[in-house]
């Protein structure tokens, strides 16, 4: 039958096309990480060095911290590389992660319209809590990630620390976008709104419009990144040895130097602080 032959060859072609270059023998690990690390370009700088040193390819799936951890909970990643200490510790406590190691930090900044209608800059532009209070008081437009990411979690902590009950204060001024850092910045740029962002994404972000940094440098704004091996006891297929190699490399001198040397426009984005 000609149709049967047609059918079989079509499926064979489809199989070839679909699986074509996924070489099974390629050695790789899957890292679920955050958009901030991927989109700032850090991984593009860091991973080739690791691949060269180890021969292991790293496949990065970039999501919000919450999603990245959920992905790992389902066993779809070998290593998580995220920035939300509370959520990470919960992840370990649930038994999904082996051990959390601190790698580096960057910092959050408040970005907003250059004219700063809410006067969120304050006296020295270093007080995050005062800045948020002023934004809330003037009901100046504020864009929130609203996506359970590490940045979103941090934002919620700052509102709380500033003594503002968001549930009550929320109004049309507070735009919950449910999107990644980049899309949220795009929204903020088009609305001329305030937004909490990580410095790395901001520095590599091109569509800034009228936005500028309004608050920065408050020690409260430091944003710690941790790296965790997914627990092989929960997910036996996890590439334990290669995943651990990546973690060991990134917290050791070589990886830490590579992180420190990543700069955009002469500015360092991430500050290594792994404890030996």
């Amino acid at each position: 039958m000609i149709f049967r032959r047609l059918f079989c060859s079509a499926l064979a072609v489809a199989g070839l096309l679909g699986a074509g270059s996924t070489r099974a023998e390629e050695r790789f690990i899957t890292v679920s990480s955050t958009t901030s690390t991927e989109q700032s370009g850090l991984f593009g700088h860091l991973l080739p060095a690791f691949e060269k040193a180890s021969g292991i390819k790293v496949r990065v799936v970039a999501l919000g911290t919450g999603q990245a951890l959920d992905l790992a909970r389902r066993g779809d990643a070998d290593v998580v590389f995220v920035h939300d200490k509370t959520a990470e510790e919960k992840f370990i406590a649930e038994g999904f992660g082996v051990k959390r190691q601190e790698v580096m930090y960057n910092d959050f900044i408040v970005v907003g319209p250059k004219a700063d209608p809410a006067k969120a800059h304050g006296t020295n532009g270093r007080d995050i809590l005062e800045g948020l209070r002023r934004i809330e008081a003037t009901k100046a437009p504020f864009v929130s990630r609203g996506d359970k990411s590490g940045t979103h979690a941090a934002e919620l902590r700052y509102w709380k620390a500033a003594g503002i009950d968001l549930d009550k204060a929320k109004g049309p001024w507070y735009r919950d976008t449910g999107s990644g850092m980049g899309p949220a910045l795009n929204t903020a740029a088009s609305m001329n709104a305030y937004i909490l962002a990580d410095r790395g994404t901001w520095l590599s972000f091109k569509n800034r419009g009228e936005l500028a940094i309004i608050v920065e440098g408050d020690t409260k704004l430091f944003n710690q990144y941790g790296v965790i091996l997914v627990n092989p006891a929960k997910h036996p297929h996890v590439k334990q040895a290669d995943g651990q190699k990546f973690i060991d490399w990134v917290v050791a001198a070589e990886g830490q130097q590579a992180i420190a040397s990543y700069k955009i426009g002469g500015e360092q984005l991430f500050f290594p602080n792994a404890k030996p």
Binding site: L6, F7, A10, L11, V13, A14, G15, L17, G18
Partner: peptide, 13 residues
């Protein structure tokens, strides 16, 4: 092209 062509082929078959 590869992915979408393969998917379309399967869809046609």
């Amino acid at each position: 092209l590869r992915v979408s062509f393969a998917a379309t082929l399967i869809a046609c078959v």
